[in-house]
Design a protein around this nucleic acid. Structure first.
Lengths: 256, 256
DNA sequence: AACATCGTTTCATTATATGAAACGATTTAC
DNA sequence: GTAAATCGTTTCATATAATGAAACGATGTT
């Protein structure tokens, strides 16, 4: 399991372990809370927090709790990986969102998961709560299944071998063979559905975005609550997001 | 000069000093290059880089040079400070950009500088190269002068006292008294101009965005090259960005 | 073939991160 | 209104982990 046991700088590892605590739902942390969460000594935690604060990676709110700081915002916006994809997907996604009044996602396959690069939120009250930059399971999302379906055979095999298909809902595909069949169907019909496979009440539809060599580079999905996301709308949705996908593909083709 | 000399974790400080090297124009670094840049020993630099890579804060490109990694993208997108402003400014900015085909910026005043929270790029070839999350001098930008002009008297005084008004071009306002006069004019006419004060050939116009208590919270600016950014367009530009500003102000007012 | 440069590893030395305990300041409980 | 609990912070002796000069093999250049 432990790959190259390099001699890492433990203080830096600890600092990022602390920052990782902010990835969850809890956005504000005190010293003792974080010490408990990370298992580090209270003094150690305190000094790491002070250091991260002085660097701008964290900052205190008016209750003296720590928040992620603007230094991370600055650095995060400078990450060049997938930067062109993020940029050229922006307008097409806005266009889709204007026509379909549901949440639209744009993501790529990264480290065996879906990495969300962009999104536009539904203007309606009931909406999905995802984060740009966050990861999601591939096998139980429409966007993930599309990305998987159009990957190389090797990658699919590797994915099926290394991923445990845990049930998220009663509809989750938990059998590798069944997933393979589903992927085959997705390749044939050129879109994927997620019928409450990740979360009960949540339905998604996704299509692939292809690059210059007709290899898949990303996927666009539309998500909505089952209460208003009806199967008879699928053709309509597909037409709209396919238009967006074609816009993105054109931008990719023209990208130097 | 050195405030509280707390005992910071030096390894963590070094790690972020390394990350800060990527803030400049150079986006790819090797071990020896970074060691030279930071002044750290080659071995130390190597180990810090390895650590940051294993944490996902950096990653290697196909030439084995280091790039900022997706962990920073993830964390950066989770920064909650100004998050609502970023989100609710997005659509209005897109609308402005669709009408004016120039680069539009949206920023706030932070630590005596302009912090860019959002932008939409000009579709034209010639455009400004700024970064969301990056900082810019306030006294020689339209957006900065607006933010400054509508700040409290105390803040303006503090700014003038602590900031050295270095010339960026021959048009830069380098005299505090002259800047005060300029700010007064901006308050009166409710917009600011940057006539090649930051960069020769670059002209900007900016207006304030007010919050619930009529205190300034942000500013919108339009930037373009002097070759096509003509003063007779100002009234037209102002009308369009004021519409956007009003949309944002409305969202702020309705924000719980 | 000789040289320069790259990232990487070694190992003795030093510096620094560590944590239990005590601290004063707030906040909560009674 | 007093006591108790909890908060972030500081201290200091100790041990651990970061350090850097030198040597390393690999790669690319002259």
């Amino acid at each position: 399991m432990n790959e190259d046991v390099k001699d890492l700088n433990l203080s830096v590892v600890k600092a990022f372990t602390i920052l990782d605590a902010f990835v969850g739902d809890k956005k504000e942390w005190g010293v003792r809370e974080l010490a408990k969460k990370t298992g580090y000594n209270k003094s150690t935690t305190y000094r790491l927090l002070s250091t991260l604060e002085s660097l701008g990676a964290l900052q205190k709110n008016n209750e003296d709790k720590y928040l992620l700081g603007l230094k991370l915002f600055e650095l995060g916006n400078l990450v060049s990986i997938h930067k062109s994809l993020r940029k050229l997907s922006r307008t097409p996604l806005e266009n889709i969102a204007r026509e379909i009044k549901e949440t639209v996602h744009f993501g790529v396959f990264d480290k065996g998961q879906v990495l969300y690069l962009n999104k536009t939120e539904s203007p309606q009250g009931l909406k999905v709560s995802t984060q740009i930059g966050s990861y999601q399971k591939a096998y139980c999302t429409a966007i993930g299944k599309v990305l998987l379906a159009f990957s190389s055979e090797d990658e699919i095999t590797k994915y099926l071998k290394t991923t445990s298909l845990d049930a998220c809902t009663e509809n989750t595909i938990t059998d590798a063979k069944a997933l393979e069949v589903a992927l085959k169907k997705i390749r044939k019909q050129q879109y994927a559905l997620d019928m409450e496979e990740l979360e009960l009440g949540l339905i998604c539809i996704a299509i692939p975005v292809f690059g210059k060599n007709n290899d898949i580079v990303a996927s666009i999905s539309v998500s909505g609550p089952s209460s208003r996301f009806k199967l008879e709308n699928i053709d309509n949705y597909l037409a709209i997001i396919k238009k967006g996908a074609r816009e993105i593909e054109e931008s990719i083709a023209n990208y130097n």
